[in-house]
Write a protein that binds this DNA or RNA. Structure first.
Lengths: 225, 225
DNA sequence: GAAGTCATTTAATGGCAGTTAAATCCATTT
DNA sequence: AAATGGATTTAACTGCCATTAAATGACTTC
């Protein structure tokens, strides 16, 4: 499996969320930053390898096998991102590009060892779910701060990505894994008052929408497809 | 720079030790596990990119620039090997193949961060020297145990690679970074008596030739090309 | 110095992944 | 039912990296 093939599988996997009855060539080409003709070509190759179903003019759909491959690439991507942030002190906005390369390293043992080294994380630094070895995505209580009620308490597990926002968080001394308790919500402007690191802070509605919390209550350790 | 180009540069760098006045196409092809014609082709491409000097029928020689690239690939390879052994508990014989992939990841920042994370190691798990960011190889007192005298004391920094030998070391409870003091040498069969982990052991001449020590005495912290 | 041998290069070809340009399909409009 | 327009596919070509087969160069040997 080439890098390019893996990248197409990953793209199709993500696009299937939006295109439930077949991912169109054009959408695929756009996501891959290439031309529709290139996408058609690749899709034919992947179809021959039984990694996806392809009916001309009707888009593509991953096969069971294709999905397994796609999920494993996503797993590796998210584990490496976690590694880069947690162990090598990268900031959240720097890791994507590097993880795009690392996700193609072929060694199941490496992936598993990395997973263990990181203590089997369930979410990456962007708050995206990390599938386990079997390909199951964890079920966790992940919500945007903006959706919380007064009294809710949780851990900051992810943020919306943008250099400006990350900079802002840095200035505000808000970091990944900080424990946040919702003190109150201001109905007037949807701003939130939170307690974080034993300090009381107020964050705007826009900020609240960009922070992902893992809620403490009702936590389940189940996983599902 | 493609993976393949980087691999050729690395191979040429290593071969220049043996072929000081030009690396022959055939030697290069053999190291790359490919055909001479493929090597010629690649060599032409690399010559066009000014990474090496190529005179038909007279072999190749890296340019300054080519050498810099080759050394950086070697640096990454050895840092990743160190990471795999020290952090992910891989054994010495498993890491080469994975490092062959990781060495091509493009991010200077990643390499530097990894270096720091590993505490700027000077040797990899095989005892090979790790060049620094500038491309200088460290100067250290690295010797085979077989070349030591009674009274010498040092740290086990590398071993000759083979599954059998690594297995043997495991059984003998000899590990990387163990401190070894030479108690005596038996002239009869060139076996060595050593103190390791507060225990006295005798190792055969063959074993002594396969263990690399970093001697404690006369250590220099200089680096050189 | 001609012949032979080995190393090396050139030429032709194939797979992968992209491009542009032309052709084709599908759905809608008239 | 024909025409139009957008999405999609096909065709022809390029670069990278390998292959095999043929040609050529360099050196030894007689």
């Amino acid at each position: 499996m080439t890098f390019s093939e893996e990248n197409y599988l990953k793209a199709i996997f993500h696009l299937e969320e939006d295109f439930e009855d077949g991912v169109p060539t054009n959408a695929l080409a756009e996501m891959m930053q290439t031309k529709a003709s290139s996408a058609t070509d690749m899709v034919k190759r992947l179809a021959e390898k039984k990694l996806l179903h392809y009916i001309p003019y009707q888009g593509v759909r991953l096969t069971e096998n294709g999905e397994i491959h796609a999920i494993q690439v996503i797993r590796k991507h998210r584990l490496w991102e976690t590694f880069l942030v947690e162990k090598l002190s990268f900031s959240w906005d720097e890791v994507h590009e590097i993880a795009e390369q690392l996700e193609h390293i072929k060694s199941e043992k490496l992936t598993d060892r990395l997973d263990k080294f990181l203590n089997f994380p369930k979410v990456d630094p962007h708050g995206d779910l990390i599938p386990n070895k079997k390909g199951d995505f964890p079920v966790i209580n992940k919500v945007r701060l903006s959706e919380c009620q007064a009294g809710d308490k949780g851990t900051l597990i992810g943020v919306e990505d943008s250099k400006e926002f990350l900079n802002f968080l840095d200035n505000q001394q808000i970091s990944l894994h900080d424990i946040i308790e919702v003190v109150g919500k201001e109905e007037f402007d949807n701003s939130f008052t939170i307690e974080i690191n034993s300090k009381i802070k107020t964050v705007s509605s826009k900020t609240a929408e960009s922070l992902f919390l893992l809620l403490d209550v009702g936590r389940e350790d189940n996983v599902t497809k």
